[in-house]
């Protein structure tokens, strides 16, 4: 079909490739077989160019580069970047939950130290019986192992459970500290979106 309108300019061809052709280009294309062929071939060329595979350098490439690069101003601090609001919120939740749990455990231990009789009487008879049975088993199991002068304090502790409470409190404190320390080593959830 013949058309009097000028053929598509290179900019108009570009606009077709980027899917925002001008109205003039669209109406011209509808009547011009020559430009239709141009646009079709252009799209095909661009498609094939975009589909070309990436060439991959050898596996030694990065090491080869790093061997000749001077890493400037070495620092010993860990790599840090600004935290995202989402990461900050997640960290706050973990700290609040951890703090409340730690406070509850410490409070319970403190109360038990100050009120040993009440603490022992607090448990139900069934729990007490179970506790006694467990304690007796531990005494039997440990007695042979700790029947040496150097472990006299262990023997005393087994014989008098109440003396173990400060040690248990200390252990609980150390455990809480370790948990807090571990928290800093734990990784954040990964965010894959690149800015």
């Amino acid at each position: 079909m013949m058309t009097t309108a000028a053929h598509l300019t290179t900019d108009e061809l570009d606009a077709f490739l980027e899917d925002h052709p001008t109205p003039r280009a669209t109406s011209h294309l509808a009547t011009c077989a020559e430009c239709q062929m141009m646009v079709t071939l252009d799209r095909e060329v661009v498609y094939h160019l975009g589909a070309l595979p990436e060439h991959v350098p050898s596996y030694r490439f990065a090491d080869g580069v790093m061997a000749r690069v001077t890493v400037g101003h070495p620092v010993s601090a860990p790599v840090v970047v600004p935290a995202t609001p989402r990461a900050l919120a997640a960290r706050r939740r973990v700290l609040v939950a951890g703090g409340l749990t730690g406070a509850a455990v410490a409070g319970a231990f403190g109360w038990a130290i100050l009120n040993p009789a009440a603490a022992l009487g607090f448990a139900s008879p069934a729990l007490q019986q179970g506790g006694h049975a467990l304690w007796a088993g531990m005494q039997v199991g440990l007695s042979s192992a700790v029947d040496q002068p150097v472990l006299a304090w262990v023997t005393d502790m087994v014989a008098a459970p109440m003396r173990a409470i400060p040690i248990l409190v200390g252990a609980a404190g150390a455990y809480a500290l370790a948990l807090t320390g571990m928290r800093h080593l734990l990784t954040e959830p990964a965010h894959h979106a690149r800015g």
């Binding site: 860990p78 790599v79 935290a83 990461a87 954040e188 894959h192 690149r194």
Partner: peptide, 8 residues
């Protein structure tokens, strides 16, 4: 915070 995923 420490870098855990460079892609971000």
């Amino acid at each position: 915070r420490p870098v855990t995923d460079w892609r971000e």
